[in-house]
Each structure stands twice: as structure tokens, then as C-alpha cells.
């Protein structure tokens, strides 16, 4: 973890989110998450369902406003200038659906225009996306008629059309078949070389082990520990990520402080 804020693509401090639930009353979904992801780094948020991963990612992508704390995306404060943050961000999750009545090309054109691309630049960007994600066979059909894998490819193209320096992916392989899942993993890996900071959440340990430069373990709305796999081994004294995860969760349940 670096002290230099200039090298950080995503930086959060004490990020918290409280909801009012009619049945449960006040719910603290995220209880003060600190995070630092650098440019060209792949950072995985690992945690069980309900740990606060999605809420954290939604705050970072300006979908939700933090109750407290502060976050910067590419140096821009998410609370102060959410519009500029959205311009520098590509976001994708299982619930970022495509507009069913638009074609893939119309979807890309719509997002491209709103990202400030126009005329030949816009069409060139769309053509590049069609080539990169092999959309030619189905990109001019309505999204509602596409298969899950085809939709996923259009969604990725939509998220990176404007070449954002930061990419946030919320459980990007959930619900995908083996081929689509493999494509997604390859895509994430390829962004490292492009110098993009990728923050993604998952509960699939093998994905995190294979892809991530660093991993953050999230549990009960808190970041229990974060670092490279070797750093996490050193913190817990365990070899495998699954053991590391269990050890950290048990410590948290026992009331021991996070590492």
C-alpha cells in the first residue's frame, strides 16, 4: 500500500453506509472501509454474501451516496463531483442490465455520446468495441434477443467504450457459463496491461487467487485485511486463501481486531 495519493486510482477512507429498513430499522451495511487501489492493479474484494461488497462498490461508483467517509476515483471525490467520477469509471455488475429494446450498437452509441464522443470518433470507438469483443454477429440485434454471454460482451463493451482509467466489476462472473466466465477473466487480466485499475468483488476464491495483485477480505461491513496473497499469509499464518479467509472471519467473530 502506498502513501502516495497520486498513484492511487481508487482510494477510500472510513467509507460507511447506513440504510433505513422498515423491518430491521437502521442497518449498517458498510462500517468504515479503507481501500487503496493503484493504477494498473487488479484488486479483489472477497467476502460472503451480505458482507458489504456490493454496497462499497456502489458507493465508489456514485450509485449510492456514502453516509460517512470519503472516496476518490482517479483523484476525484465521489461526493463532491460524482459526474466527473462517472466519466472516469467503467462499472459492471449482474444488475447493470442492458436496455432490452435497444440494439448493442445503439447502446454503445448512447453511452458514447453521453461520454462526450461524437461523429467519427464515436463510430470509430464503436467499431473498435465491435472488433475487440466480437460483436459483429449480434451487435445490431435488440439486446432482449441476445444470449447471456452475448449480453455480457455488449455490457463489457459498454463499460469500457470510453476507455476509463478505473474499472469496477461487481461479481462479474456470477451467472455466466464456463466460456463466458473464462472470457470475463481474460478480459480482466488484459486490463492490467492497459494500465487500468480494476476493482472487482467475488466470492469465488480461485478467481481472486488467479487474477488479483492484492485482495481485500470484507466481512460484516468491514475490511478485515488487505494485501497481496503473501502479505495475507504473513498476517494469518495460513497457506491457502480459503484458510486465510476462515482465519480472518473467525478472528472477527471472536472480537479480535482486523489485521
Amino acid at each position: 500500500m502506498t502513501d502516495s495519493t497520486s498513484a492511487s486510482a481508487i482510494r477510500a477512507e472510513g467509507l460507511a453506509k447506513t440504510f433505513h429498513d422498515p423491518q430491521r430499522g437502521v442497518v449498517e451495511a458498510v462500517k468504515g472501509v479503507d481501500l487503496d487501489c493503484r493504477k494498473g492493479e487488479i484488486f479483489g474484494l472477497l467476502g460472503p454474501n451480505g458482507a458489504g461488497k456490493t454496497t462499497t462498490l456502489r458507493m465508489l461508483s456514485t450509485i449510492l451516496a456514502p453516509t460517512s467517509g470519503r472516496a476518490l476515483i482517479d483523484g476525484i471525490d465521489v461526493a463532491e463531483d460524482p459526474l466527473e467520477v462517472r466519466r472516469r469509471l467503467g462499472f459492471l455488475s449482474g444488475s447493470t442490465g442492458l436496455y432490452p429494446r435497444l440494439t448493442g450498437r445503439e447502446t454503445l452509441r448512447y453511452f458514447g455520446r453521453l461520454h462526450g464522443l461524437e461523429g467519427d470518433d464515436l463510430e470509430a470507438a464503436i467499431a473498435r468495441a465491435f472488433d475487440a469483443f466480437d460483436l459483429h454477429a449480434f451487435g445490431d440485434g435488440r439486446c432482449e434477443a441476445l444470449s447471456t454471454g452475448q449480453k455480457q460482451r455488449v455490457s463489457i463493451a459498454r463499460a469500457v467504450l470510453h476507455d476509463p482509467p478505473v474499472l469496477i466489476l461487481d461479481e462479474p462472473t456470477t451467472g455466466l457459463d464456463i466460456m463466458a466466465s473464462s472470457d470475463m477473466i481474460q478480459f480482466i487480466d488484459s486490463r492490467r496491461e492497459a494500465g487500468t485499475c480494476v476493482l472487482f468483488s467475488t466470492h469465488i476464491l480461485s478467481e481472486a487467487e488467479r487474477l488479483c495483485d492484492r485482495i481485500g477480505i470484507v466481512y460484516d461491513g468491514r475490511m478485515l485485511a488487505g494485501g497481496s496473497l503473501d502479505e495475507l499469509r504473513a498476517i494469518t499464518g495460513k497457506e491457502w486463501l480459503e484458510e486465510i479467509f476462515r482465519e480472518l472471519v473467525q478472528r472477527a467473530d471472536a472480537g479480535e481486531g482486523a489485521a
Binding site: R58, S61, T62, I63, L83, R86, R87, L89, F91, S93, S95, T96, G97, L98, Y99, P100, F111, L114, H115, G116
Partner: peptide, 11 residues
């Protein structure tokens, strides 16, 4: 249609 989140991400 699960496009609300997509729309909220518009710049």
C-alpha cells in the same frame, strides 16, 4: 428490467 443501475451510471 434491471437497467436502473445502468441508467444511474450515465455520465
Amino acid at each position: 428490467r434491471q437497467t436502473a443501475e445502468t441508467t444511474l451510471l450515465l455520465p
